[in-house]
Design a protein around this nucleic acid. Structure first.
Length: 657
DNA sequence: GCAAGGTC
């Protein structure tokens, strides 16, 4: 064997990474590509004479001192998870009691396309002596690595000691070569953690889904075609919507009173932040906020108001302050943030967004759209990308050029956000095109948003001058704030989505101690307004904050609860629960189980984290959580009439009409 | 006919 090259199978998580890896292997000194890529269930690349420390002497994750050796690299990819867990025959809907699903056996299957991939990998594995598992370096990637390993070992057991796991977070030559010199092993704890979550979700989800569905079918009409699913993510997602709705329902409007003060001042030479344009003789009105805000006591407000009226001739400026304010540029774009912004700015729902982003990604317009990362790695080359935008970016050419002009004095390295999945970079444009040439309007507006966001990240903070004026009338203080934008910077490119409100412009330079004459001093009555239904952006933020779903699945959960007819979205991207959604949440709540709360999910995640960290065993947490959920399940079934009651308030029972 | 997690 020592004279022949070692054949190594390289498997990535997705085709784009396999392609990029092959590109790196191509570029390594002395390497020769064997023909073009061939196409089986996935693209397969082959390179000979790829030199790095001998693979058989690696595997401890330390930098290797093994001698350099030539390897033949066979490079391909899966497409996400390969296999799926399910209950075997004999545990179908009508074949068993749903309660059995907490302990029923499970089997692994390779469905559809995955079957072809499984066979392809097995065949490749037969002719290789080592496997490098280039799956994303996140927890789910570790589990997929385990699936790939299993499939390869089925066809070639001798590979067992030669399964390697590199550490990498971008497919850049330096990083890949470094990874090839310090190959590690699959982290079994991560695999256990993912499998624990997966198994729990399946058992609990299937048991409750079957219970609910069968119960409603039996007791109510109109459910024969419908699956009434339960899931540890979809239910809390629904819960957030129901919770907001309940606050709207129980809302009682209250009256409040406040004192409004306005003064009239001459318009200064410069009008707001726009242009210098003297307008002699014109005046404008400045609005003050009462320091007490609003009071819910009319008489009390009246007393204070009358004291103001008595002292209105002595209204005095007691403070005038100017402070420099900045409006921070955004942090690099993650999926969740893109979803929120697309909903807020473009009225594009998360599911539509992800489909369009996927297309943009596949056509090379943007980087990988499923990422938690909000920080650029140091190696990221901003200049070439901005140059590309300056040359070819259509309406963004001018701004991109500005960032590069004057020795780059307008450019600033992006801030770092809080999150980093260590597997993918933030979302950026990959190539610059004139957005007008993208035919699909949804894709076009998303591409524009991504370009705007990217350029904003590379810009300086906006700078403004805030002035605060405090006027005292008798015992009462009133505050006015004004803002003048001094430098727009990133706001220039993020127009019209991001702005900095300068309603009052800059305030006049009134002297402290001077008297002013109120133009308006009135007592106003107002009424508190009910909360609005939850917007999609708010829902995404809640899910993200409570750990419901992931960047890649949040949109799917939101779609699921609509498909299951638990909630609907209106034209304003706001969600209302359906009668069924409300009834389900109410039903479980009336039993004392807050299944709509994110707490259960949080607990499962926390336990899985412990497994991943190696501080708990998979079996230990599985037993505990399954037993707990089984208890809730048994109790819910025993009290199913409470669920019936909640549903019965909104649907008609079988035989009743 | 059930989940959630990858990816297309």
């Amino acid at each position: 064997m020592s004279n022949r090259e070692i054949r190594v199978l390289n498997v990535a998580e997705k085709p784009s990474v396999a392609r990029a890896l092959a590109g790196v292997f191509s570029g390594m000194q002395g390497s020769r590509q064997h023909g073009g890529p061939r196409r089986e269930a996935a693209q397969i690349f082959e390179h000979h004479n790829v030199r790095f420390p001998e693979i058989f002497r690696q595997g401890n994750g330390q930098r290797s001192n093994a001698p350099i050796k030539a390897h033949t690299m066979i490079t391909t990819s899966v497409r996400g998870h390969l296999s799926n867990r399910d209950f075997p025959d004999g545990f179908g809907w009508s074949a068993c009691d749903p309660g059995e699903l907490f302990h029923a056996p499970l089997e692994i299957s390779y469905k559809g396309d995955m079957n072809a991939l499984q066979r392809m990998l097995g065949n490749l594995a037969r002719n290789c002596q080592a496997v490098i598992l280039w799956l994303d370096c996140d927890r789910e990637g570790e589990a997929i690595a385990d699936e790939v390993r299993t499939v390869c070992l089925e066809k070639n057991q001798r590979l067992s000691p030669h399964m390697f796991r590199p550490k990498f977070s971008t497919v850049l030559p330096g990083e890949i070569q470094r990874a090839l010199q310090s190959l590690g092993r699959v982290n079994e704890n991560f695999v256990d953690a993912v499998n624990a979550r997966s198994e729990l979700d399946l058992r609990v989800g299937a048991a409750f889904s079957r219970f609910q569905t069968l119960r409603l079918q039996k007791k109510f009409s109109g459910f024969s075609e419908q699956v009434v699913s339960y899931g540890p993510c979809q239910f809390p997602t629904l819960g957030f919507i129901v919770e907001r709705w309940a606050r709207m329902e129980t809302f009682v409007s209250e009256k409040f009173w406040s004192i409004e003060l306005r003064i009239t001042v001459p318009v200064p030479g410069a009008d707001n932040d726009q242009n210098v344009n003297p307008q002699p003789g014109r005046t404008r009105s400045i609005e003050f906020t009462w320091k007490r805000g609003r009071l819910y006591d009319r008489l009390m407000t009246l007393v204070l108001y009358e004291s103001c009226m008595d002292a209105r001739d002595q209204a005095t400026v007691i403070d005038l302050r100017g402070t420099q304010k900045k409006k921070w540029r955004p942090v690099p774009l993650s999926t969740v943030e893109l979803q929120k912004r697309a909903s807020r700015f473009l009225r594009i729902g998360s599911e539509t967004l992800m489909a369009a982003a996927e297309s943009l990604y596949n056509n090379g317009y943007i980087s990988y759209p499923r990422t938690e990362t909000e920080v650029f790695r140091q190696e990221f080359q901003h200049r070439p990308l901005i140059q590309d935008l300056a040359g070819n970016g259509g309406e963004f050419r001018q701004y991109a050029s500005k960032l590069l002009s004057n020795n780059g004095q307008h450019f600033q390295n992006p801030r770092a956000g809080r999150n980093d999945d260590k597997a993918h970079p933030p979302i950026t444009p990959c190539k610059a095109v004139d957005p007008a040439t993208i035919p699909d309007t949804t894709q076009r507006s998303i591409y524009k948003l991504i370009v705007q966001h990217y350029l904003a990240c590379c810009s300086k903070d906006a700078v403004g001058k805030e002035t605060q004026l405090i006027v005292r009338i008798g015992t009462e203080d009133f505050t006015a704030k004004g803002l003048m934008i001094v430098e727009r910077n990133w706001l220039e490119v993020y127009h019209p989505h991001e702005r900095w409100s300068t309603q009052q412009g800059e305030l006049p330079e009134l002297e402290i101690g001077s008297r002013i004459v109120p133009s308006t001093l009135t007592m106003k009555e107002g009424e508190t307004t009910p909360p609005q239904p939850l917007t999609e952006a708010e829902l995404i933020a809640l899910m993200d904050r409570h750990g419901i779903g992931t960047d890649a699945t949040i949109a799917a959960h939101i779609t699921t609860i609509q498909e299951r007819q638990y909630a609907t979205k209106d034209a304003g991207q706001r969600f209302l629960p359906s009668p069924l959604g409300i009834a389900l949440v109410e039903g479980y709540n009336s039993m004392g189980y807050q299944l709509n709360k994110p707490d259960l999910r949080r607990e499962v995640e926390a336990e899985c984290n412990q497994v991943a960290a190696g501080t708990k065993q998979k079996a230990e947490i599985m037993n505990r959580i399954l037993e707990k959920m089984r208890q809730i399940f048994m109790a819910a079934r025993a009290e199913a009439t409470k669920l019936d009651a909640a549903v019965g308030r909104r649907f008609s029972r079988v035989g009743v009409g």
